[in-house]
Amino acid sequence: MSELRTDRLVLRGWRESDLAPWAAMHADPEAREHFPGTLTREQSEASVARFQADLDQRGWGWWAVEVKATGVFIGFTGLDPVDEDLPFTGVEVGWRLARPHWGHGYATEAARAALDHGFGTLGRTEILAITTATNLRSQAVMRRIGMTRDPADDFDDMTVPEGPLRRSVVYRLRSDDRRSAVSG
């Protein structure tokens, strides 16, 4: 399994010690504002088991993120194949951080590391990011990491109950566009 490092962060496999803060994050209504609801401790633990199984099998996926200087677990970031029920295919980049760690640039920094891995190590030619139309904070991160949105890609996620969270937006970054942005 790959471990990714940035100036301030380590993206790594999951540990037993991550379970309590992960579950607390998913029990926080504000942290889950752009999802249909909060998760139970059991649901949170099951997601960690799936994430670690993917990391063990593929060597990439949803990594746990910790602050390098303190070793504090702050959330997750990574890459994953898009769900089969979506109207497109590909690999998406994503992140989710506990509220105390918002606003420090961690999501942007971790997402850039995941993109580097996706384009460099995995040889992807395009990486997507998907969120609700209401999640303006994540959309700002998507723009900061060089992604662009074509409203023609937006869709209604039929796995989400009817309401403001159903409308999803898609951002894309192609490897050629990323190289141009980095060199320009």
Rank of each mutant, 00 (worst) to 15 (best):
H26K: 09
V10T: 14
D156T: 02
W102G: 00
G94F: 12
A69L: 05
E3Q: 15
D116F: 01
G71L: 06
S168P: 01
R58C: 06
V82N: 02
V170M: 07
A152Q: 05
D156F: 06
R166F: 11
F73L: 04
M1G: 10
G163W: 07
A23M: 00
R137N: 04
I130K: 10
D156L: 02
G120N: 15
I74Q: 00
V141D: 00
A113I: 12
P161N: 13
P21H: 01
L115E: 03
L86A: 05
G184C: 09
D80G: 10
H101N: 00
A53P: 12
G123Y: 04
L19I: 07
A111R: 03
L173G: 11
D116Y: 05
P151Q: 03
S138T: 06
P21K: 01
A152K: 08
F35K: 07
A152R: 08
G90I: 13
L39N: 11
R112C: 03
E162F: 08
T38V: 13
R124S: 06
L86N: 09
S168M: 08
P164I: 07
A69C: 02
P161W: 11
A129G: 10
L136I: 09
F88H: 05
T38A: 10
D54T: 14
V169D: 03
F76P: 06
V93H: 01
V82W: 00
P87I: 07
T134R: 13
W63K: 04
R172A: 03
Q43A: 14
W102L: 02
L128H: 04
V65E: 00
T77H: 00
E16T: 15
F76Y: 14
W102M: 00
L136D: 10
P151S: 06
F35M: 09
M147E: 06
V65S: 00
A23S: 06
R179A: 15
G120H: 13
F88Y: 11
R96G: 04
T134S: 13
V170S: 02
I74L: 01
T134D: 11
V72E: 15
A69Q: 04
